[in-house]
Amino acid sequence: MAVDAETVRRVARLARIAEPEARLDPLAREISGILGWIEQLNEVDVEGVEPMATAVHATQPLREDVVADGGDPARVLGNAPRSDDGFFVVPKVVE
């Protein structure tokens, strides 16, 4: 399936990556190329095949309901580009 510049613009927007106008067409070509190569998967008969999301055969392990983490704001704020008064400070969100 060929991807056009408009699709790249939409996907880049979803992924929150600024792509300059001039990059949209080249990216569309690259991604189309990769998707074209990927399309050979359509040759595989997957009728009735259970999708395999993980190679692990076990089931989800469970943790006890015990407080064993958190309680240290400095630990999570220490790498923040901006913080103030215990909060992460981020660009203004317009509701």
């Binding site: 943790r63 309901d65 407080v67 983490d69 958190g70 240290d72 704001p73 704020l77």
Partner: peptide
């Protein structure tokens, strides 16, 4: 007492980011 996927406390009225794990 703790969160759905982490061991940080659940509760009301704690200081900002005081109940946050990495």
């Amino acid at each position: 007492r703790a969160k759905l996927f982490s061991g940080a406390a659940v509760g009301f009225g704690a200081g900002p980011n005081a109940q946050v794990s990495t």
